[in-house]
Design a protein around this nucleic acid. Structure first.
Lengths: 213, 213
DNA sequence: ACGGTAAGCTGACGGCATGACAGGACAAGT
DNA sequence: ACTTGTCCTGTCATGCCGTCAGCTTACCGT
């Protein structure tokens, strides 16, 4: 299914080769979280991995290519986010718990992968289709089931509600909040206070009502 | 007050120098909107401006330095966004119009400066204080008066409402929506439909009520 | 008009990253 | 030990970075 891992010049990579490749990816991941994207150089990644730049180019066309690889890995991982919404109830107090857990899980995921997601977000904003697609995959893992939840909860009583638009806005909000939580700090909102505030927004968006006391 | 414009080596720039400097900034701005940030090179900017790389380094320490300059200019410009909130009423139908105009004005501003804002957003997310500060200045031009509006509208009846948190979330949402409007398109939400949807969110957030029909 | 002075620009250069290649090291099977 | 295919690196041409010395240009006072 996945097809074998191949080098840039078409050879199939063996055990040792895959190890080196993986080590390069790990080092790149680390570099991304410590240096500005613009300053990440092939030579630094290679040095950190204890190998030479030439080796890097055997497995990846360039830094961007390797970044896409990491991104793809992460996108696979994002499938688990579905469980935060799928099959959950939005009624009454249980509903608010659902909302809190969603916010919590989403923020945790984003924070865990913040370095790579930062680059993906940039690439997507710049109009790069490959990055855009990956970003959509991550967001959709939550946005799709959430839109469904909105339709189930509000769609019956109010036909003018657009589930996709609401879910999209909520997911966009969550992603941006995770990426820029420091901004909230500077507004005097502690990270601890941020979560309930977002949970409230999500609950409001999905149900259209204020949460029960 | 502003202090004269100076070259990197301390000379004060005269008329001709300021022209060249400005031309370099203009070309950089253009480059940013056509190439990925990572690929913007000093030599390209210089070539486009019809000058030599050495000249570039006379006015800016590096690409980032010049970007900060453009960003600062833009941040000055963002002061006008205040008028979208200051002195506006949030009551009844007028309130919803206020919301619509705010969304419209904010999105227009963001779209007009999307290239530079993209870079600022990245820099802020990466933890660069200079970029962070500029981003806050732009966001605060709306967030600060908006928080005030929330307090005036809801704060009297409900002490648990945190105006800063709500205003912050709304502004974060608007910024991210502007930056990633393509994502909404892919969710089947047209740009035309996006605005009313955001206006609704803003109105809800500020007033805590559904808008009048 | 004419020199003096400071601004303005660039050619040239060492240094470093990129990206390609060919050849040597290495592991595994025979 | 020998072969085969994988794996790594030394080396090289190319191109960008960032600096400097030095030349040109504009402005100013006399």
């Amino acid at each position: 299914m996945t097809g074998q891992v191949r080098t840039v010049d078409g050879r199939v990579a063996g055990r040792r080769g895959q190890e080196t490749r993986q080590k390069l990816l790990d080092c790149l991941r680390e570099m991304l979280s410590t240096s500005p994207y613009r300053d990440v150089k092939v030579i630094d990644v290679a040095r950190m991995a204890g190998t030479s730049p030439a080796t890097f180019y055997q497995y990846f066309p360039d830094v961007e290519g390797a970044v896409l690889e990491i991104a793809e890995e992460m996108a696979e991982d994002s499938g688990g986010l579905k469980e935060l919404v799928d099959g959950k109830s939005w009624a009454g107090k249980t509903g608010f718990t659902t909302s809190e857990e969603l916010v919590d899980g989403f923020l945790a995921f984003w924070r865990k992968n913040d370095a790579i997601l930062r680059v993906i977000t940039l690439g997507a904003a710049e109009g790069d289709k490959r990055f855009f697609k990956i970003r959509m995959k991550v967001l959709n893992s939550v946005a799709a089931p959430l839109a469904e939840a909105v339709r189930n909860t509000q769609g019956k009583t109010d036909k003018t509600v657009d589930g996709s638009a609401i879910a999209g806005a909520l997911v966009t909000l969550l992603a941006a909040s995770a990426e820029h939580s420091k901004a909230f700090t500077s507004w005097g909102v502690k990270v601890k206070d941020l979560k309930p505030s977002l949970a409230l927004q999500v609950y409001l968006g999905v149900t259209g009502k204020k949460p029960p006391k």
